[in-house]
Design a protein around this nucleic acid. Sequence first.
DNA 1: ATGGCTCTCGCGGAGAGA
Length: 257
Amino acid sequence: MRIATWNVNGLRARLEYITKWLEDKQPDVVGFQELKTPDDVFPIDHFKELGYEALVHGQKSWNGVAILSKHPAELVHTGLKGQSDVGSRLITADIDGKFEFTTVYCPNGKNLEHADYAGKLGWYDSLTKQWQSGKNGPRIICGDFNIVPEPIDGWKGEAADGGIFHTKEERARLQSLMDTGLTDLYRHFYPDEQAFTWWDYRGGSFHRKHGLRIDFILATEGVDALTKDVVIDRDYRRKIDELTPSDHAPVYADIDF
DNA sequence: ATGGCTCTCGCGGAGAGA
């Protein structure tokens, strides 16, 4: 089964681009982030025509997450307890009784002095707490985590340490989540590769290889042994026929569920 | 050092993103 995550930076603005990728790569289950779309105008029927059912936790203008699935998918829950004021950022579904699939859009934090930074740390605490209370069995949590785990995961390397996305506090929060028993599937397969999932739109960052790896597919114990490969789909960070890409590339894993 | 683009909302230009 092909499992994917993608911050699309506006689902409606990206719909034609997203459709090309779905047709080309045929993922079975996809987590989208940054829909910027209210639930009542989410193009459910469009995805149905492409063979997907959709579960949506959206909002007007900002944030928003959704799950597409070619297999029967049942909504488990949306959101984090006590965190509804930071927007629609988490959705979980059971996929055909085989595994639980969660996708998240973690808060950005803006800068170290901004109130959103403390809010980001608190959001992570809530996430780890809720994740720990989840059920046993195979689970995937993927999405845009907005934290650079290690110096190798950013183009500036150690020079970026201490800045937003690269602080000890943020990295400790991500580590606490990982310490519940999660494996970062990309890093598991490619322990020494420098690979990015996001590049700034400005200044030709993509071509200058100025990016960050902040989008992950994390899996509970045993799923790594079922995983055949993990791909950061850089080709889909490029313009296609004058269609503007997201600033994030899709990431997918092929897993024998 | 800074800003460099793109999105939404809504019709100008501000706010957010990472």
